[in-house]
């Protein structure tokens, strides 16, 4: 019993220290990456390429998901609102949920699954096949040539994708609410416009997605860069990217929401 307890604490201690080690490594990596950004930012064509693979390739899944989420919100929202005779507020409810929360968060989750996992696998594989070492031997810094463009692409793509998600969602809600249920078109939009603040709601939502893009981008390149150079190592790094990205996004969302919207209405 005592020895089991001791073992438990030993495991716990090992877990904590290894996590802290990992965090320290990530912090140092982020610092080096920051230094590499300066060089990388001048190579726009490299970033464009990565925005294509991360952002453009995620466009369809994000737009379609946004449309469906907006439609579902409209159906559910109408169900509740019409009990209180304020079905016209449907636009407000849907738009605020999308712009403030669902747009940035769901987009980041989709992005982590669709694009970031691929980035991790790609960088991990480049490391395993010594492509990064070869680059380093050719006096080309892999951090600025390979890692930084992929990281920047996530930061660039995320707010654009989140905006597309929210827009598709509002259109989806409009299709259900106005076209199918028959809420007044004018009331739908005017209520929405009267209650959605560009600075507080829209800009804060975009700010969130930039933060999420930074976090997800950093996690994906970090896990790829330090993946064990084996098939199993890359597979588990890819899984870790999705899991850690998703959890970080949800945690950051809570922190940002408290910071941004506390004390407002």
């Amino acid at each position: 019993m005592i020895s089991q307890l001791a073992e438990f604490f030993q495991d716990l201690g090992h877990f904590v220290t290894s996590r802290i080690d990992r965090l320290g490594l990530a912090a140092r990596f982020a610092g080096l990456l920051l230094l590499a950004l300066g060089v990388s930012i001048r190579r726009a064509s490299l970033i464009v390429r990565e925005v294509y693979f991360s952002g453009v390739r995620s466009l369809s899944i994000v737009a379609v998901s946004g449309l469906f989420v907006g439609m579902v919100l409209a159906v559910q929202g109408y169900e509740v609102l019409q009990r209180y005779g304020s079905a016209e507020s449907l636009g407000v409810i849907v738009a605020l949920s999308l712009v403030r929360e669902l747009g940035p968060v769901v987009t980041a989750l989709l992005f982590a699954g669709r694009a970031s996992s691929a980035v991790t696998a790609e960088i991990g594989l480049m490391r395993a096949t010594e492509q990064l070492a070869a680059m380093d031997m050719m006096a080309v810094d892999p951090l600025s040539r390979v890692v930084a463009p992929r990281f920047l692409a996530a930061i660039v793509s995320m707010p654009l994708l989140a905006a597309i998600f929210s827009t598709a969602g509002v259109i989806g809600a409009w299709i259900i609410g106005v076209q199918l249920i028959g809420i007044d078109d004018g009331a739908f939009w005017s209520q929405m416009q009267a209650n959605v603040d560009v600075r507080i709601d829209v800009l804060n939502g975009l700010l969130k997605s930039i933060v999420f893009g930074t976090a997800v981008g950093l996690i994906s390149v970090f896990e790829g860069y330090f993946a064990a150079p084996t098939a199993e190592g890359i597979a588990s790094a890819t899984t870790r990217t999705v899991v850690i990205s998703s959890l970080s996004v949800l945690l950051l969302d809570l922190v940002l929401t408290v910071m941004m919207f506390r004390g407002l209405s």
Partner: peptide, 28 residues
């Protein structure tokens, strides 16, 4: 690549404008 990314950025910016003008009320 340039074309596809350019189109993507344009759609994204258009969505942001939509959110600013049609969803929110920037003119207000």
């Amino acid at each position: 690549f340039d074309f596809a990314v350019g189109l993507f950025v344009a759609i994204g910016l258009l969505a942001m404008v939509f959110m600013a003008l049609k969803v929110g009320n920037l003119a207000g």
